[in-house]
Design a protein around this nucleic acid. Structure first.
Lengths: 213, 213, 213, 213
DNA sequence: CATGAATGAGAGTTCATTCAT
DNA sequence: GATGAATGAACTCTCATTCAT
């Protein structure tokens, strides 16, 4: 997971160029089809350097992926801590807004995650994904638990299932930002900021209220 | 999209062996990493034959994928037509049951779909996925439209958003069947038939009723 | 050990060119340092073909080496069968002459053997070498056993040790033919046929009579 | 052949660690396959230092090999000088014992020698090996010449040939110590000290007496 | 003087595709 | 129509060597 100190001591700008090129390549092509040739020629360094920094392709991938996960976690943590007093409705909205914000700032990271979902022979794939999903669910569960304590939930709500639904819907919402074909008629892809805010509100409404009388 | 007539005139049994081997390979390895070598050696035919039948790797993939999509569509159509009179709650349950049933009978097809979600250089990937998602949403929308006409929906429900939530949740539910790390605490993966039925009911409850009072 | 039938069905001339180039390369450079690039560019075939024929570098080496061993064994067998009635002295001479003959006709094979002696990571190296040495010793032992039965040996001779000495000396004699620095003052390297015959006679004399009165 | 003075001025302990690591690597892998990376990381010095000390890989090898040859020569010289008065039989035994002793104390050096025998592109390989063999033969020749003067030899003995046989047999005996497959039924490999002493005696008996009446 | 980052040629191997039989 | 041998580009990874610090 940790690159060679050589890499860490590189000038910030060079490090970022390498990280960006690698993240781009992996998120565009998945693990196995990603080409180190492409990465190095984009960055303009020698092929050998990548292997000096990260040992092998697997090491490079784990580093890039780990970095991305850390970025997401920090982002979510900030949101949770900034909204502890707010009602559930608002907290969900803020969470999703933060997700949108993050996905727009780092579209590559989201694609990288989606890629990893779907590829079989990725190193430590199972462990990686389990940890991500668990993190996401625990985050939502802490929101719902707080809401229940505050009496914001209807009696008889199954919190596990509710988390599942919210997680899936938010995940898909974010996918739609990056992948046009996941948009599903909502017009999420290519919506401007104002429109997105409205769509987020609608989604959270629907998640909280359901569809039946 | 259409294979060479030579292929279509092959004995049924041989055709099926080729289709199965190809679907297995693509769903295990994605598009680019799938190996035609592996396919032909599994089937026991000459490598050149594949190229005679399908032109190139892309042609083979499109044929296999198209076949799978057709199977799904037929399955869903049957469910819709068999439950037109039932209440929304039941129709959703039956739809999800049918999805589970299909995924269990044809696990390869589901993996093939998930793979395609995530790979960039798949031929006509965008078109393929858009058509699938649209089909799925239209299917759900026809269910909800009928429900609204029957007065089963709460006033002010945004049907587009509701479809989006239901589609995302059902999709994730089916993913959890095949990929353990998408299970998310619900215990879907490895559940027996009876347990699955209960989970399906809970999910549909949650989707219809929301979480707030 | 067995190459792909594809290789076996090649025109004799092409097969021989491949075998020769590979044997040359291995005997010049050992296993690990031998370059498949060099082999294919010498033969003028595509790199992929070698891997089609032999699977991998290891497979190529085992085939080439096995072929060489077979050639040696056949040669020795002929000599033994052609001299069963002759006295020990003559049989040793004929054996060595045959060895010289073989080494001159196939200098590459001898170098290949010497190479294998000295390299560590050769596939199945231990098994290969044990089998060769055992074959050689058994051959000599059968000669000495026959001689003992015929009363040609001095009482109290330790046959194991005698075989060891003869084997080592003959081995070195043959090495000297190919490697000038093993010549050791005898002038074996670059000797003409007539001179070699005399040297062979001297060596066998010495082996049979020792040096003390 | 001579390293940079910088190396010679290094602390003894560091010098020895470098020499040991290099000798290990060359004797394990031969010349071309030996990795300077491995050497420096074992010793814990910078890669550049090796090139500062020895110029290039070739310089390092020549230095290490030369050192080893010197060690062997010193060893043999001691034996010769310590046994000038003894009969030939004893002197040969002592020589072989010394060889065994040396091989057991410095197994790396012997492997290094065997490696060099077999590799083509070693720098100055021919010159190196010729000098070694010549030294060995001259050593034996001085023993046999002394013996002849003392009347220990049978009339008509060809001293060149005798040296050749003795040299080859002793060489093989020592090889058998390190390489199990050269053992040839004598059980040299893994023999304890006492057994070895007996085997040495038998070998020298055989060398001196031959096999015929 | 020591360092170790950078280099790029070359290693073995895989693979979709072509085409003569 | 079926075959499978041949191809060569692309892959990951290793390595001796250089040189700025």
């Amino acid at each position: 997971m940790e690159p060679n100190p050589t890499f860490l001591n590189l000038p910030e700008e060079k490090k970022r160029r390498i990280e960006k090129a690698a993240a781009d390549e992996f998120s565009d092509n998945g693990y196995r089809s990603a080409s180190i040739n492409t990465i190095v020629s984009k960055v303009g360094i020698a092929k050998g350097s990548i292997f000096q920094y990260f040992g092998d392709k697997k090491g490079l991938f784990l580093f890039i992926f780990g970095q991305s996960v850390d970025k997401v976690k920090n982002y979510l943590k900030e949101v949770r801590d900034a909204t502890t007093e707010a009602p559930l409705h608002l907290r969900l909205e803020e969470t999703l807004k933060a997700g949108v914000d993050f996905t727009q700032k780092h579209p590559v990271i989201y694609r990288l995650y989606v890629r990893t979902l779907a590829e079989k022979e990725i190193p430590f794939r199972a462990e990686i994904l389990t940890s991500i999903r668990n993190y996401s669910l625990e985050y939502l569960r802490s929101l719902l638990d707080t809401a229940r304590e505050k009496g914001e939930l209807r009696d008889g709500v199954n919190i596990d299932v509710a988390c599942f639904v919210i997680d899936a819907s938010m995940d898909r919402f974010l996918q739609a930002l990056t992948l046009p074909h996941m948009d599903g008629g909502l017009g999420i892809h290519n919506a401007d900021e104002k429109e997105l805010e409205i769509k987020i509100k609608h989604l959270c409404d629907s998640l909280l209220s359901g569809v039946t009388p």
